[in-house]
Simulated scan of single mutants.
Amino acid sequence: MLKDKRLRFIIGHYGSGKTEFSINYAIKLVKQDKKVAIADLDVVNLYFRSREKTDLLEKLGIKVIGSSIKGAAVDIPAISAEILAPMQDASYEAIIDVGGDPAGARTLGMYNKYFVQGEYDMFFVLNANRPETQTVEKSIEYLRKIEDTARAKVTGIVNNTHMLKSTTVEDVLKGQELAEKVSRKTNIPIKYISAIEKVAKELPKNLKGEIFPMTLYMREEWMV
């Protein structure tokens, strides 16, 4: 993780698990005594966004940037100008949770002048169980569309194939097969293989990519 670029943009389809990955990533960084900020750029999807865990993240010392409109009962697609802080302040390790789909990624494109190729990582979170990313062709088409609207290039693939709390080793390996095929076609490396902790412990150690154990912070105890 420490070898990744300071700015990390996390993209993927709705339901891919990109927000869960983003939160876990931020928490792992702050546990390594890093100055961490997580920015929620999702102005499309109203549910399961990183800003919903502001209290938890701020208690851990993570700066959370979300809507410029404050209010628990208000949901307006407005992004705080604070987003520029981690982009311009090199003391921050920053995770930018980008809205799902090409439409959501367009928001990131607005800030293109604040980052250049080689100074960021953009991770494509791939879930082989999502209908729109179940094949190599669909996955690559989806990836390229997001790149076009985000005006940034994907630098790594994250295999995050899951079935929430019911995820098995077989689910992850199914996603790994797809991720490796996408990687070969695009010359984009597999950066991480993310899975809930009990599954991550059982994964083969020779897989391409770093095994990334996760806690389901976005799933409340009563959720399946």
Rank of each mutant, 00 (worst) to 15 (best):
E20V: 01
E20I: 00
N24W: 05
I27P: 00
K28C: 10
L29C: 08
K31C: 06
K31I: 08
Q32Y: 04
D33G: 03
K34P: 08
K35A: 05
K35P: 01
V36Q: 00
V36H: 02
I38P: 07
D42A: 12
N45S: 12
N45Y: 11
L46K: 07
L46D: 14
L46H: 13
Y47W: 10
Y47K: 13
R49C: 10
S50G: 11
R51S: 13
T54Y: 03
D55F: 11
L57D: 04
L60P: 01
L60S: 05
G61E: 02
I62H: 02
K63L: 09
I65Q: 06
I65D: 06
S67F: 00
I69Q: 06
I69P: 01
G71W: 10
A72F: 12
P77L: 03
I79Q: 12
I79W: 08
I79F: 09
I83F: 07
I83N: 02
P86L: 09
M87G: 02
M87C: 00
D89I: 01
Y92Q: 06
Y92S: 05
Y92N: 05
Y92C: 03
E93G: 13
I95Q: 00
I96W: 02
I96D: 00
G99L: 06
D101I: 04
P102W: 00
P102I: 14
A103G: 09
G104Y: 08
G109I: 12
M110N: 06
Y114D: 12
V116C: 05
Q117D: 15
G118I: 13
E119W: 01
D121W: 03
M122R: 05
F123R: 02
F123V: 04
F123C: 06
F124A: 07
V125W: 11
L126T: 07
N127R: 13
N129A: 11
N129W: 14
N129E: 12
R130L: 13
E132A: 15
T133L: 14
T133Y: 05
T133M: 14
Q134N: 15
S139E: 01
E141Q: 15
Y142L: 15
L143A: 10
R144N: 11
I146S: 03
I146N: 02
D148M: 12
D148L: 14
A150P: 07
A150L: 04
